[in-house]
Design a protein around this nucleic acid. Structure first.
Lengths: 221, 221
DNA sequence: GGTTGTGAACAAATTCACAGCG
DNA sequence: CGCTGTGAATTTGTTCACAACC
């Protein structure tokens, strides 16, 4: 369930504020969803709430972290050290949250050996050894679109079955692997599409109330 | 419709290969979706196909670009020049696709005035003037979670009604604005969740066939 | 013959609404 | 009495299947 991480984040905020107990209603409000949905989603993990009272923040966090596999680190390898790859390797948000960058990979010999954000760039051919040595769990594809599928295949062959794809291309993986994608220009195109619609109608005629609610939904989940 | 940009990208590939005509079946295969869905989605734009023949790539591209608002540039302002903000400003993918970075903004006086990726960082207080001067259409939030809502409010107040949020926080905007979000750690958490499930079952018991198909779906759309 | 466009059938996701429990 | 957990109702999204058309 793609919404669990959102609840997790909200619960962490509550914990930081020393809130010990929370109702589905308040949690829903903070997470920006419907209360019934929160209860359905949480009941998927088991019955961790107390009727008439709500959910114990601490206990729910524990159960959820366990379920989300956050009790251990998941080393990440970034393939494709162009602008975006270099940017991601320098982005602290991964390591802080249990996804340390274990290695940087590129196929371009002129990049191999360079040090970027404290990591030596290694060659794509060494991928199998790197994965084994460093226990890589997740592969991030930041290559141009043309090579994305090839890199995905090599990641899977090397035993990396969780892949996050930033390349603007349709990539497919065998059923034993999981793939998620983030396409930045695609997000911008969707935004300018809605913007265009709004402007065209000089108001909101082009978009009905339901569409407008949809606009506010997550770009990803 | 969040799938239109995917079709657009596919059509651009076809155009590059000088393919002049395409059936919904082939287009569906390339875009990784069902053929009926392609036809439904495209018919939403109008009747641009020819029965027994297919769709004219060039003509469909023209109509789609118009619909997606890609006939003009949409200047982008990036707010929050930390690791991620700096990374995004240096990422060429925006400008290349019609979303030039018009300005960089931060609230930290020690960052204001610095030159990053060829842009002078300006102060958040100057946002209204910057938006008007440079015709900013889209705001990208790359601040910490705590300030994301405040920045969104200021963007909307300054007249920026299309916002892409990278901060790991729930941000709400008034109905006249559109918001999409990209949360990188959230994507990783979802991936490690699936990975955990796979490992737990030592096979695929924890996940049925339908779930596995869902795993391969887009992380965003 | 081949392919679109679309109503009808189906499936999934969301929301409602309330019984059951603390 | 309040809030969870969940079956039923509703809405939304997808896929099927075929008539209409080139």
């Amino acid at each position: 369930m793609a919404r669990l991480p959102v609840y997790l984040r909200t619960l962490l905020e509550l914990q930081a504020e020393s809130v010990s107990n929370i109702s589905s209603e308040r949690l829903a409000e903070m997470a920006g969803v419907n209360a019934a949905k929160v209860r359905k989603d949480l009941s998927f993990l088991g019955s961790y709430g107390t009727r008439g009272v709500g959910y114990d923040v601490e206990y729910l966090l524990f159960q959820m972290s366990r379920e989300l596999g956050l009790t251990k680190d998941w080393p990440v390898v970034i393939v494709g050290i162009g602008n975006l790859g270099a940017a991601l390797s320098n982005y602290g948000g991964f390591g802080d949250r249990g996804y340390p960058v274990a290695a940087l990979i590129d196929a371009d010999p002129s990049k191999v050996g360079k040090v970027i954000s404290g990591h030596i760039v290694r060659h794509l051919d060494d991928l199998p050894e790197i994965v084994t040595e460093l226990g890589v769990a997740i592969g991030v594809i930041a290559t141009p679109a043309e090579t994305a599928q090839e890199v995905a295949d090599k990641l899977v062959a090397a035993g990396v079955t969780s892949i996050l794809n930033f390349a603007p291309a349709v990539v497919s993986v065998p059923p034993e692997a999981s793939l998620r994608k983030v396409d930045l220009s695609l997000e911008l195109q969707i935004l300018s599409f809605y913007r265009q619609r709004d402007a065209a109608g000089e108001g909101l005629e082009g978009l009905d109330a339901l569409d407008r609610v949809a606009v506010q939904k997550s770009a990803s989940a």
